[in-house]
């Protein structure tokens, strides 16, 4: 079943007197458990694509549908709840909530429906999974870039989202750390059925995804089998059962 669908999405910005087309009729369908990597250099439109997919920004044209609901038609409060409960985001310049330790920051999304103890337990478990357990009591300014990325991933995953949107999550990691992180993303897609949309610059980890696309000047370039419109999946190499 399709979880996220973008249909001919257009997004424009004005830079001075110049109009920038950040997304140029982008269409994309993601199913449950899909792990899709979008490969693009800086200013190709990757972050805009994620912000529109998350419902943080409304498209200027086309539509974004999450679980059958068109995001633009939902009340703002409803969209905010989706972001808190069902959509996890990992941003490049992520911050943690002011004054909180890493553990409390990661526990935060769980507090709405769980006790403080349970939320902290879940947060500890997630920090362990992303390899950042040792950072639990640290504050933001004490973290290395790599740890900040791992904490951001833990914060996004702790809510057990149905959709994970990740903006260059491997950017500050070394080769082995990247491999570990992409393995984690792949396993949350395959084992937990989370749909993952990952933006990446140029790196071999792109090849660990189930599907690969490229974004340039707001144009999403897809392999021909996808361009025909129907979702033709590629040979299920490495996909979990």
């Amino acid at each position: 079943m399709t979880l996220l669908s973008l249909d001919r999405v257009v997004k424009r910005y004005w830079r001075g007197y110049r109009e920038i087309v950040a997304l140029d009729e982008v269409s994309l369908e993601l199913e449950r458990g899909d792990f899709v990597a979008v490969w693009g250099s800086s200013r190709s439109g990757k972050t805009t694509l994620l912000r529109v997919a998350a419902g943080i920004e409304a498209p200027d044209g086309g539509s974004v549908t999450f679980d059958g609901q068109e995001l633009a038609t939902l009340p703002r409060k409803h969209r905010a709840r989706l972001l808190l409960e069902q959509i996890g985001c990992v941003w490049q310049a992520g911050r943690i909530t002011h004054g909180l330790s890493v553990l409390d920051h990661v526990a935060l999304p769980r507090l709405k429906h769980h006790s403080h103890t349970q939320a902290r337990r879940d947060a500890t478990e997630m920090l362990e999974r992303v390899g950042a357990r040792q950072c639990a009591q640290a504050h933001w300014y004490e973290l290395s870039d790599g740890d900040r990325t791992r904490v951001a991933v833990a914060h996004a995953l702790v809510r057990r989202p149905r959709l994970l949107l990740a903006d260059e999550p491997t950017a500050n990691l070394n080769m082995i750390e990247r491999e570990q992180l992409v393995s984690l993303l792949r396993s949350v897609a395959e084992d937990a059925g989370v749909t993952v949309l990952m933006m990446a610059p140029d790196a071999p980890e792109l090849l660990r995804s189930h599907r690969l696309m490229s974004l340039d000047h707001g144009r999403l370039i897809k392999p021909r089998s996808e361009r025909r419109g129907e979702l033709i999946d590629f040979p299920a190499r490495g996909r979990g059962a």
Binding site: L207, R208, P223
Partner: peptide, 16 residues
């Protein structure tokens, strides 16, 4: 670029 993606896709590899 699309043709390159198609070829890359044949290399999508669960075991790097």
């Amino acid at each position: 670029e699309q043709a390159c993606l198609e070829r890359l896709e044949q290399s999508l590899e669960p075991r790097p």
